[in-house]
């Protein structure tokens, strides 16, 4: 059964009529994993069972052509979480937000995947969704453009939230809500 957000996307794309859907779907931040230096969070729509980053890795895991790159990208998440911290030098700049993998000067390998994210501070990173980037710029790439736009929108909203934290933990997690 498709989740509510992908159905919305399907209708929006396939309909030949101009739809003016005003559907309020809310999202929250959920904790994904805490490492020594970084606590990773992700965005979860209220009607979805998985967070955005879990949707991303599920899609990569099930695609034999992308799985190996996804494993390498996943190791970077662990390495930054345990050894480096939320240092912007180790992330790609994506306008308002950031992305994995690190720039090639640091990763030393070509990884075509993009996992959009947002560095709240050196101890807190929010992981979004992404895909295999096949065109430049991201806004024109059919695989990642909607993830890119979502990442910009969520980052803008998260910046306006009053996040209270203690190291790698967001302490007022349940109070934080924004539009999906």
């Amino acid at each position: 059964m498709p989740d509510c957000t992908s159905l919305l996307y399907f209708w929006g794309r396939k309909s030949t009529k101009k739809l003016n859907l005003k559907v309020n779907i809310f999202a929250t931040l959920v904790e994904v994993k805490r490492y020594v230096l970084v606590g990773y969070y992700s965005v979860k729509a209220e009607c979805n069972s998985r967070s955005e980053v879990d949707v991303f890795f599920k899609r990569m895991y099930e695609d034999p052509e992308l799985k190996d790159e996804a494993i390498r990208l996943r190791y970077w998440i662990t390495k930054i979480g345990n050894e480096i911290g939320g240092d912007p030098d180790y992330f790609r700049d994506e306008r308002l937000c950031n992305a994995f993998p690190p720039p090639i000067e640091i990763s030393h390998e070509y990884i075509g995947l993009r996992l959009y994210c947002y560095i709240i501070n050196e101890n807190l990173v929010v992981l979004y969704n992404g895909g295999k980037k096949i065109g430049n710029p991201a806004e024109k790439c059919p695989n990642v453009k909607h993830h890119f736009y979502n990442a910009q929108s969520w980052t803008k909203q998260i910046r306006e939230l009053e996040i209270e934290s203690n190291g790698t933990i967001i302490t007022n997690l349940k109070e934080l809500e924004f539009r999906y």
Binding site: V32, K33, S51, V53, D54, F57, K58, M60, Y61, K67, A70, I71, R72, R74, Y75, W76, T78, K79, I106, S107, H108, E109
Partner: peptide, 23 residues
Amino acid sequence: ESYFDKIEQDIKKEHTFFVDFGF
């Protein structure tokens, strides 16, 4: 099942050595 955790279990030594050595 969390795929974020599941894929972490697939990280092999060759992946970590490759990344760490270059870094």
